[in-house]
Amino acid sequence: MSRQCAGDRLVLAAAPEAVGCTRTFIAAKLRSWRAMEALDEALLVASELVTNAVRATGLVAVQLRVAGPSLYVEVWDNMPGVPEVKCLEADAEGGRGLHLVEALATRWGVCHPQSGGKVVWAELSLPAPALLLSPEAASEELADAVLLERVLDALSGR
């Protein structure tokens, strides 16, 4: 089977445990999608993005999407600010997260959905095929929907 599209999301309280929960979620999803070749990079990228979101806010949402040859790690929080890649001193104890994301991701960025907050996303390459969803699910996932709108729907029970 060729990979077309798959996706799933997780909503968490912004607590230190959110990073560990995210890592468990990603490992389970990638295993079920037969996309384990991206595990190490996805875990590191998601850990860095979720850590930043936990420091910024009270609610964090993580979404994984497979579209074609790419895995997208998307992290939403309700703060509008844009994360900055900092110039680091050699002895700095922190601030390397976005440098790691830049190094591992094919590309990354930030979007601001109309409903508020921000989504920081990273694209990772997937060299091997993953699980294929039904054509209906694939079409829906490929739509240019924003993670925040999906999270708000889930929270409101729609």
Rank of each mutant, 00 (worst) to 15 (best):
3 R>V: 01
6 A>V: 13
7 G>Q: 04
9 R>M: 11
17 E>C: 03
25 F>D: 05
28 A>F: 15
29 K>N: 03
35 A>M: 05
36 M>P: 03
36 M>D: 11
37 E>C: 04
39 L>S: 02
39 L>Y: 13
40 D>K: 12
46 A>M: 07
46 A>Q: 15
48 E>I: 10
49 L>C: 08
49 L>R: 11
50 V>F: 00
50 V>Q: 04
52 N>D: 13
53 A>E: 00
55 R>G: 09
57 T>C: 15
57 T>N: 10
59 L>C: 08
60 V>L: 03
60 V>N: 12
63 Q>I: 11
63 Q>N: 02
64 L>P: 12
64 L>K: 00
66 V>W: 08
71 L>D: 00
73 V>H: 02
73 V>T: 01
79 M>T: 15
79 M>S: 05
80 P>A: 01
85 V>D: 11
85 V>Y: 13
89 E>I: 08
91 D>L: 09
92 A>Q: 06
93 E>P: 11
94 G>P: 04
95 G>D: 13
96 R>V: 14
96 R>G: 09
100 L>P: 00
100 L>G: 01
101 V>N: 03
102 E>L: 12
105 A>K: 01
107 R>Q: 10
107 R>V: 15
114 Q>F: 12
114 Q>N: 09
115 S>G: 01
115 S>Q: 14
117 G>S: 09
118 K>R: 11
118 K>F: 02
119 V>F: 06
121 W>F: 12
121 W>E: 13
122 A>E: 05
122 A>L: 04
122 A>V: 02
124 L>S: 10
125 S>C: 07
126 L>Q: 02
129 P>S: 11
130 A>R: 12
131 L>I: 00
133 L>W: 06
133 L>V: 06
137 A>R: 10
138 A>Q: 03
138 A>W: 01
139 S>E: 13
139 S>I: 14
140 E>P: 00
146 V>K: 00
146 V>I: 07
149 E>C: 02
157 G>I: 03
